[in-house]
Structures are given as C-alpha cells and as structure tokens.
Amino acid sequence: MQKHTIAVLVENQFGVLCRVAGLFSARGFNIDSLTVGETQHADLSRMTVVARGDERVVQQIVRQLDKLIDVISIEILNPQDSIDRELVLIKVKSDLSNRNDLMGVVNNFRGKIVDVQEDSMTLEATGTEAKIDAMLELLRAFGVIEVVRTGKIAISRKAPLDAPEAKEVEVVKVKKSAKAKSSAKAATKGGDKKAKMQAGTDTWM
C-alpha cells in the first residue's frame, strides 16, 4: 500500500491530538507515524501524519480530518514538491575495539555522536526515512541497543500551509431569517479550507 504524507494544521488546544488519533483508530485507517508541534503561530500546531492506503482511503482520511472542527487546513504533500526529515537517536554497543569502524558509518551518514559510555555510544542522525533505515541496517552488525525515532516531519517547497482568516458569522437569533442572512454574508467572505486538498486528489472521481 502506498504511503502518504499529510500535513494538518490544527488549533493548538488540549484534546486535539486525541481527536485526530481517535479518528484514525475509529475509522480503521493505517497510520505509520504522527508527529505534532507548535508552528510560528502560538495558537497553531502542525501535525505530520504518514498513512497507508490507496487513493480512496487517503481521500477519506482528508475528508474525515476536514470534518473535525479543530482542524484548520490539510495538505497532502507530494514527495517531489516537499522535503521530509526524521530524527533518530540510536544507542549502539561499542568499546575501544570498534569505535573507529562505528565512527566511519556515522560519518558516512552525516550523523553525530552525542554520547559515549564505556560500552556504548549514542548517535544522532537526521534524514529521510530511507536513509535512516539504511543506517540502522549497517549499525545492526555492531549491536543496536535502543532506537528512538521521531516519525516524519515534512514541509512543502512551495506555498506554506496557511490558516484562513477566521471569519465572523453573525448568529444573533436562531430565526430562519437571521440564519439566511448570516449564510449569505459568510458565502461572500474568504476562508478556503479545502482548496489545497482538492487539486491532487479528485482525479479518480
């Protein structure tokens, strides 16, 4: 099954991670990794979700995410037009006898040694998932003690994933006339949550 990287801009509030994670388990979507952190705006968090599925499943994921009130914008990141990285910390068995060999591997992958103990070393590396997998494979011979990976984060080379301007919808009264008025008003204002996702995904419909 194809892997997809989905960037999700959400309100930086308690419970939002639960909503997103809960949606994936409730809908039975396969998820490889999910990372979350603050953005340049304190009130916005950004999640990077790596999920598996065919085109239709990804479409469902995007549309279901879109229904969450706290989800503001969504973008499926195309590998050609985006940069992705993962950070890994690896503790490897090591003593005087193999330290040089180990450093060779680390240097090859432009990793760093961040801690040295008598019988182990801790390495740090960043890169694409494939690079980190390759590095881990080579380190296996030394004896890997512990691996901690962040999961993928990704950024588009092109336009940033933006939060639309919050628009104000007047809902003073529940009466029908008031509702109609507010909807007319809203329709003329901006706020385009879906524009980004539609471009690449509705080809099969």
């Binding site: 009130i69 628009k167 104000e168 919808v169 007047e170 809902v171 003073v172 909807s183 809203a186 329709a187």
Partner: peptide
C-alpha cells in the same frame, strides 16, 4: 457571532 476558522458550513 461565532468565529471558527476550521468550520465553514455555509
């Protein structure tokens, strides 16, 4: 009024 940037039913 409501201001919800993640919800635009209209």
């Amino acid at each position: 009024s409501v201001k919800l940037r993640g919800y635009n039913p209209e």
